[in-house]
Amino acid sequence: MKIFERFLHIDRRIIFVLIFIGVALPLIWTLGFNLEVTENVESVYNLMEELEPGTRILISFDYGPSTKPEIQPMAIALMEQAFTNRIRIIAIALWPMGVQMCNEAFEKVSAEYPNIEYGIDFINLGYKVGGMVTINHMAKDFRSTFPTDGGGNPIDEFPIMKGIKNFDKLGCVISLSAGDPGLKQWVMIAHDTFGKPVGGGTTAVQAPIMLAYVNEQQQLIGLLGGLKGAAEYELLINKPGFATKGMDAQSVAHLIIIIFILIGNIGYFATRKKDTMKS
């Protein structure tokens, strides 16, 4: 019975080491488990696919470096799909570090699309403080909210911004969000108040909260939840990247956690039975 008592008190350093190995090895050697596309991810993909070439969409980078491993693959996959379909991107950030995230994603993607030009096919308007109030203000008066791009150049100089006065000429809004302000605020203002289709991606932790907005009213058209959402999107656009590779590591880590939970419960029931018999 002593072994069952040990099951209850495994040194957490053992768990840490096993998680480390479980995450590191699949990142080096790909395991290639089966990946399936879920309905919510497919909805975002279809939303983008249905847009006419030349349509302008708004992507809001509402995350920072801490959640980059989960959300940046989504940004890259979305940009690749947009540029392949000749959809033009107006990027903004409601998080200060979203600006750099956007620049990094654009740098990576634009290398594969030499015809893409800044100011014509893509623009980064930079960060704006204010969260929900900023979104509301943009919807009423876009040009006074963002009079210049991230580099301080007046937006009138860029063809992509021609005629953009509010959300009317945008095909859809995509928010890549790691918290507040983010996707929830975009749903509340861009969709609920101004009727624009909104799609988005969040961290896996936030996905259960945001799923409530994926409903019959289509407050949220679809949702990319965490690394799995990003991996599914990479599968849809047929460009496996970091997220696809990362899914193996995440899967093994989850499996290790489940094994430890089982060990803990076996120990718990075995020792409880012993205690009951004693008493």
């Binding site: 768990i15 840490f16 980059k68 419960n265």
Partner: peptide, 26 residues
């Protein structure tokens, strides 16, 4: 900054694994 920030967030995985093992008891 990016690497330090991602590292801090990634540490959660280790603590969550340990916490799940201790907390999820039937």
């Amino acid at each position: 900054f990016e690497n330090l920030s991602a590292t801090m967030f990634s540490l959660l995985a280790f603590f969550m694994a340990s916490a799940s093992y201790r907390a999820f008891r039937a």
